[in-house]
Simulated assay, not measured.
Amino acid sequence: MLAINILTHAFLQVIGNLRQLVNISALPLLIQFFGAIATIFTAIGANNATGNASFVTLPLLVAFLLLPFVWIAVNWHRFVLLNQPQSILPRLPMNAVLRYIGTAILIAILLLVPLALAAATFQIIAGVLGSAGITFVLAFAFGIAIMLALMVASLRLGVALPAAAIGAPDAITTAWKATAGNTGTFLLLGVLMALLQIPINLITMVPTGPATPFLVSILILLLTIAVLWIYMFISLSVLTTLYGYFVERRQLRTSI
């Protein structure tokens, strides 16, 4: 199936370029780590001084947590699609980063507006029905349908992100048109990505406490970080692969 081939290609893309993964992500992740610590201490200081730390912490969270991730994403897309290798001090293409953020905001709006309209429509229908039992069944079916629709739409629109990273024109329009007629593929791909998250969530939820040996706690922490790191790049690679396949008509690699 095409969805399985896309996910396989994305996975092979990741494991075949581990050195580039390190080069692209090491510095941004270090900035995230120390930025998170700085944000915590700044928030504590601001809270003690004014009683309201949100006006201080929000800009810091954007600067230290969001921007490094976008930096990683942009350089990964550009490495794969433009054959632009990165050193341990990766490039910071600010124009591409700003395009990426702007495109992500537009995608969020395009997803949230129909969701809000659908929720309002459901409230009207539920009010007309009046029956708690029927409303519950309807809410369950409606929720599943909305979740699946969002899954497909977010993947299709998400193809615009690598397009923005490499400076392709009309990123969102191009992505939406190029992926038309493949609802089943995107639906299955979204389900596979969700299933892939299950073992990852199980690893991240492994309980640790005072009774846990220190070495075991460290190993669990390192395993959690490594798994989340790999999954992040697999997710980015899925979008890159979708762009390469549907827009640039590249071939999929399904074996080593």
Score class of each variant (00 low, 15 high):
residue 4 I to N: 04
residue 4 I to R: 14
residue 5 N to T: 06
residue 7 L to A: 07
residue 8 T to K: 15
residue 9 H to K: 04
residue 9 H to R: 06
residue 9 H to L: 14
residue 16 G to H: 07
residue 17 N to W: 07
residue 22 V to E: 10
residue 23 N to E: 01
residue 31 I to S: 03
residue 35 G to T: 07
residue 36 A to I: 12
residue 36 A to C: 10
residue 36 A to P: 06
residue 38 A to Y: 15
residue 38 A to W: 14
residue 39 T to A: 15
residue 47 N to R: 03
residue 47 N to G: 15
residue 47 N to K: 11
residue 48 N to V: 02
residue 51 G to S: 10
residue 51 G to E: 01
residue 51 G to R: 09
residue 52 N to H: 12
residue 54 S to H: 05
residue 55 F to K: 14
residue 56 V to F: 13
residue 57 T to Y: 03
residue 57 T to F: 11
residue 57 T to S: 14
residue 63 A to L: 15
residue 66 L to D: 05
residue 68 P to A: 04
residue 69 F to S: 11
residue 75 N to Y: 08
residue 76 W to Q: 09
residue 79 F to A: 00
residue 80 V to E: 10
residue 81 L to R: 08
residue 81 L to I: 11
residue 84 Q to S: 11
residue 87 S to A: 12
residue 87 S to D: 13
residue 88 I to W: 01
residue 89 L to N: 15
residue 90 P to Q: 01
residue 91 R to K: 15
residue 91 R to A: 13
residue 92 L to I: 11
residue 94 M to K: 15
residue 95 N to W: 13
residue 99 R to Y: 04
residue 102 G to L: 11
residue 107 I to C: 04
residue 119 A to G: 10
residue 120 A to T: 14
residue 121 T to K: 07
residue 121 T to R: 07
residue 123 Q to K: 12
residue 125 I to S: 13
residue 126 A to R: 01
residue 126 A to D: 03
residue 130 G to K: 11
residue 130 G to I: 02
residue 134 I to T: 12
residue 134 I to G: 07
residue 135 T to I: 15
residue 135 T to R: 14
residue 135 T to P: 02
residue 135 T to F: 05
residue 138 L to R: 00
residue 139 A to R: 10
residue 139 A to V: 05
residue 144 I to D: 08
residue 145 A to D: 09
residue 146 I to K: 08
residue 146 I to H: 08
residue 147 M to E: 03
residue 148 L to W: 10
residue 149 A to M: 06
residue 150 L to A: 00
residue 153 A to D: 01
residue 154 S to A: 13
residue 159 V to Y: 02
residue 160 A to T: 01
residue 164 A to D: 01
residue 168 A to I: 01
residue 169 P to W: 02
residue 170 D to L: 06
residue 170 D to S: 09
residue 172 I to D: 04
residue 172 I to C: 05
residue 175 A to G: 03
residue 183 T to V: 12
residue 192 L to G: 11
residue 193 M to D: 09
residue 193 M to A: 09
residue 194 A to H: 08
residue 194 A to R: 02
residue 194 A to F: 10
residue 195 L to W: 02
residue 195 L to P: 13
residue 197 Q to C: 13
residue 199 P to S: 04
residue 203 I to S: 02
residue 204 T to L: 15
residue 206 V to Y: 09
residue 207 P to W: 10
residue 209 G to S: 08
residue 211 A to W: 00
residue 213 P to S: 08
residue 215 L to P: 04
residue 215 L to A: 14
residue 218 I to H: 10
residue 220 I to N: 11
residue 221 L to R: 14
residue 224 T to E: 07
residue 227 V to Y: 11
residue 227 V to N: 02
residue 229 W to C: 04
residue 232 M to V: 04
residue 232 M to D: 07
residue 238 V to H: 13
residue 240 T to G: 08
residue 241 T to V: 11
residue 244 G to L: 00
residue 245 Y to N: 02
residue 245 Y to M: 00
residue 245 Y to Q: 00
residue 247 V to T: 04
residue 247 V to F: 03
residue 248 E to F: 11
residue 249 R to Q: 09
residue 250 R to N: 14
residue 251 Q to M: 05
residue 254 T to A: 09
residue 255 S to M: 00
residue 256 I to R: 10
residue 256 I to Q: 03
residue 256 I to L: 10
residue 256 I to K: 09
